[in-house]
Computed example of a mutant assay.
Amino acid sequence: MGKYVFKSLLQIIPVLFIVSLIVFVLVRVTGDPVALMLPETATAEDRAVLTQALGLDQPLYTQYVKFLGNAIQGDFGQSFRYGQPALELVLERLPASFELAAAAMFFAVLMAVPLGVISAVKRNTFTDLLISGISVIGKAMPNFWMGIMLILLFSVMLGVLPVSGRGGLSHLILPAFTLGVGLAAQMTRLIRSSMLEILNQDYIRTARSKGLGRLTVIVRHAFRNGLIPVVTIMSLQFTSLIGGTLITETVFSWPGLGQLLVVAVNTHDMAIVQAAVFVIALIVVLVNILTDVSYRLLDPRIKYD
C-alpha cells in the first residue's frame, strides 16, 4: 500500500503539468486580457505598455515557461480585478468551499445511509416506494429553487436562520442542506442498489444460516461491502462541490471558490483562473488517492501492486 501511495503521489507532477498547459493555452486564446484591463479611452501606446508589462508580447512557449517557473514557486501572478496575488485569493476562498462541501456531504450521508439501507431491506414494500419517490423528488428539485424556498421559510417567515453570508453554524445550515438534498437523493439510490446486490450474495446467506441476527448481518457484513460504490460517488461529488457550487454560493452569498472562479472567467482574470484550476486539480488528485486507500480499508481483498 505504501508503495502504491508513493507512486500515486509521483503521478501528481505530470497531471498538474498537463492541467497547467491546457489552462494556460485556453485562457490566452479565449480573449484579450489587455482590452479588459484598460478603459475604452486607452490609447494604442497604453495597450503596448501594458502588453509588454504582462509579457503578452512574447511567444506563447516563452510565456508558458515563465508561468510554469513562477507557478512552481507558488506565484500565479496578480489579479487585476482585486489587485492581490491570485493564489492568495484562491486560498482565502478555499476554506469556505471546504466548509460548505463538508457540511453538505455530512447532511447527505446522514440522510442517505439509513434511507438507502431501509429501502433495500424493505424491498418492494410501501416504505421502499416512499423512499424511492422522495429520492426522485429530491434529485429533481433545482438547488436555486430549494435555496430560495428554505430562505422564505426559515429566514423570512420563521426568522430562525440568517438569510446569507458566512459566519457561525447558523449561516451554514441552509446552504449545506440545499446542496445535501440532491446528493442524498443520488446516494440513497446508489446505496439501495449496492445493498440489494450484496444481500443476494452467498456469504450473506451463509451468515444467516449460522444464526446471526438480521441487524448483525446487515451492519457487519452487507453494509461495509456495499460502501465501496458509495465512497466513489462521495469522492467525485466532494471534488465537484469544491469548485462548482456557484448557484448555491450566489443564492446565499457564500464567499466560496466557485463564485470567485466564475467571476474571474467572466472578467478574463487569467491569474485567478490559472491558480484556481491548478488548486482544484491538486485537490481532485489527492482525493482520488484517499479514495483508493479507503477501498483497501473497506475490503482487505483489494490489492494494489
Rank of each mutant, 00 (worst) to 15 (best):
S79P: 02
L153Y: 08
S119R: 00
Q73K: 15
G74S: 14
Q78R: 10
V65C: 11
G77Q: 01
E88A: 11
L150S: 01
A71M: 04
A104H: 00
S155Q: 12
G138T: 02
A104E: 06
L150A: 09
R166S: 14
G133R: 11
L60D: 10
L174S: 09
P142E: 01
W145K: 00
L161W: 05
Y61M: 15
L130V: 11
F126L: 15
D57S: 10
L91M: 13
F144C: 04
V117G: 03
L89H: 08
L60W: 08
F80M: 09
M149Y: 03
L158I: 08
M149L: 12
F144Y: 11
V117W: 01
V136C: 05
E88Y: 10
L150H: 12
Q58S: 13
V113H: 07
P162I: 12
G133Q: 06
A112Y: 00
Q73M: 12
V156W: 12
A71S: 01
L152T: 04
R166N: 04
F67R: 08
L174D: 09
P59E: 15
L68W: 12
G168E: 13
L110H: 03
V163P: 03
W145C: 05
T62N: 07
L153M: 15
P59A: 14
G69H: 07
E99S: 15
K122G: 00
P59D: 10
L87C: 07
L68G: 00
F76I: 01
T127I: 14
E92W: 06
P85S: 14
L110K: 04
I173Y: 03
E99K: 11
L94C: 04
L60Q: 02
